[in-house]
Computed example of a mutant assay.
Amino acid sequence: MTITSDTSAPLVVVGGSTGQQGGSVIRSLQESDKVYRIRGLTRDVSKPAAKALTEQGVEMLSVNLVIENKAQVVEAYKGANIVFAMTNFWEHLDKAKELAEGKMFIDAALEAKVPLFIFSSLDSFEEYSGGKYKNVHHFEGKAQIANYGRSKASPSFTFVAVQAGFYYSNFTRNQIIRQESDGTWAAALPCKPDVLLPGIDVDEYGLWVRAAIEHEELRNGHEILACSQEMSIGEMVDEIARPYSPEETSLKITFKTVNNDEFRAAMPEGAPEHVKDDLMEFFNGLSAVGYYNREDVVRFLPYLSRKTTTFADWVKKKDMPEYGKI
């Protein structure tokens, strides 16, 4: 469906419109048989990705979504029926800054009288572990923002958290699987291979946001879990290593459980200590409490507009034998 400029259509304001999650939200709404106006927010409307969205009918606004620019954010949200917002801890590595920005987005939406606010959230490892894992900052900031949003909910302001599952793409760019000194490849992590990950192709994240928009009954719990398929991390590593044709041979990729000191020592030089704490406790916490800390992680799949990508199909599409070529 072509995006419209007809003012009778609901207006959806999308933060991070040229990024992975925001871009996915826009594409998912484009696929809908319903008609939407879309206003995309980005720092630089002159970059190619922003221009491409303009050509597709998206109203692009240049807004730097930082705490100092609340007035601009309020203006960008005015007239919206729906706002999708996200924060990015990895951009600045500062949980306090992420929390302040997320709260500002919610306050701006309230000031602009936005009736439906959808936030890309995550759970709290600290809460689920009874305070043991306090340093998973990239989860905790989003969890606290979601708590703030829920505290502001009212008959005129509906807050919904759409929690992003574990990106399949975390297995690319040497983020999890790294080359060993003997030339083989390994996922050397401080967790067991049987820990479960609720995986998604980030390009499909917007399907869950669209479900929140188009299925009012999903908003009652104020929380939607984005998960295409739950697999153990060991199974995922095995899938990457598996050959897909008779001509291919298995890649030498293994999963290794390492202790926390070994994991920290293998992290890139110059990584801040609080980031090392974050990732170490994240993987420790997967074994102790789990990514979502619940069993029914795929319950929202029936509400999606189409079937999502399995991890095996994503691996084939991404030509994961890249590990044997580097």
Rank of each mutant, 00 (worst) to 15 (best):
I233D: 01
A76F: 06
E31D: 11
D203A: 15
K316V: 12
K47S: 09
D194G: 03
F139Y: 13
E217R: 05
S32A: 12
Q72W: 03
E180N: 15
A241L: 02
S120E: 13
S8A: 13
E204A: 02
Y168S: 12
Q144R: 15
L41C: 10
R39I: 11
Y36S: 00
A212W: 08
C227A: 14
K318N: 10
W90A: 08
E214T: 06
W90P: 02
R173I: 08
F157D: 01
T4S: 08
F166D: 09
A49G: 02
E248P: 05
E75P: 05
G290M: 06
G290V: 05
A9E: 04
A146H: 05
G40D: 03
A76H: 03
F105V: 08
G102S: 10
T308I: 12
L93Y: 14
H222I: 00
W208I: 02
M1G: 10
L304M: 03
V83G: 09
E262T: 11
Q20L: 10
I3S: 00
N64I: 09
E281L: 04
G57D: 10
E111A: 11
K192S: 14
A161I: 03
A161K: 01
Q144A: 15
G40R: 04
L93N: 12
F125A: 06
A271L: 15
Q20T: 15
K95T: 12
E216N: 10
K318R: 10
F117E: 04
T18L: 04
F119D: 02
P302C: 07
K97Q: 14
K276F: 07
L304W: 00
P198E: 00
